[in-house]
Amino acid sequence: SLASIFLVFTGASIGRAFFGAAAMFAAFSLYGYTTKRDLTQFGSFLMMGLIGVVIASIINIFLGSSALQFAISIIGILVFVGLTAWDTQSIKLQYAEHHDGETRQKLAVMGALSLYLNFINIFQLLLSLTGERE
């Protein structure tokens, strides 16, 4: 599903966006893992932000506004780095609870999928914000 970006964007801009997304993802995942602050209060706020980004993206399909796309990219990146920290802390807390082996495996898979989706979204939004088109 990501193969089409190689047709649209230059290789250098894809590389910059990838490494930028990796740095942001790593920093906020590390923050979520190490912070003593309880991030659970931000979960519902971040989910509302995610819904807002999706709705704005659907509206922008019909409007085609570059200014709205710029705003969606900025807000989307902020939402997904926040979700990365929140998900990391949530996974850490869930994994610390005493579960049997099968439940732990399921939690690990769901956590990895959640973090993967966060990274992919950060990458795509960063690429749409800073990428150079061919």
Rank of each mutant, 00 (worst) to 15 (best):
S1N: 12
L2Y: 14
L2P: 00
I5N: 05
I5D: 10
I5Y: 11
F6P: 02
F6M: 09
V8Q: 07
T10M: 03
G11K: 07
G11Q: 07
G11F: 09
S13G: 01
S13D: 06
G15A: 15
R16Q: 13
R16S: 14
R16E: 13
A17F: 04
F18M: 11
F18V: 06
F19V: 09
G20S: 10
A22C: 06
A23Q: 03
A23H: 05
F25S: 02
S29V: 07
S29H: 08
L30E: 13
G32D: 07
Y33P: 09
Y33F: 15
T34K: 15
R37Q: 12
R37S: 11
R37N: 10
G43D: 15
S44L: 10
S44M: 11
G49C: 05
G52D: 07
V53W: 02
A56M: 10
I58S: 05
I59E: 03
N60G: 02
N60P: 01
I61H: 08
L63P: 01
G64F: 02
S65G: 02
S65V: 04
S66H: 10
S66F: 05
A67Y: 12
A67C: 03
F70L: 13
F70N: 13
A71Q: 07
A71F: 11
A71E: 05
I72A: 01
I74F: 08
I74G: 04
I74E: 05
I75H: 03
I75G: 01
I75W: 12
L78I: 12
V79S: 01
F80N: 00
F80V: 02
W86F: 14
W86L: 09
Q89I: 06
Q89M: 06
S90N: 13
K92P: 11
K92Q: 10
L93I: 09
L93S: 09
Q94W: 10
Y95T: 15
H99N: 09
H99L: 06
H99G: 02
D100I: 05
G101Q: 12
G101C: 04
E102I: 14
T103S: 12
R104I: 07
Q105K: 15
Q105L: 15
K106T: 14
V109E: 12
V109Q: 11
G111H: 02
A112D: 08
A112H: 08
L113I: 14
Y116H: 07
L117D: 05
N118C: 07
F119N: 04
I120H: 06
N121G: 06
I122P: 00
I122G: 00
F123G: 00
F123D: 00
Q124M: 15
L125G: 00
L125V: 01
L126Y: 04
L127R: 03
L127V: 02
S128M: 14
S128L: 14
R133E: 13
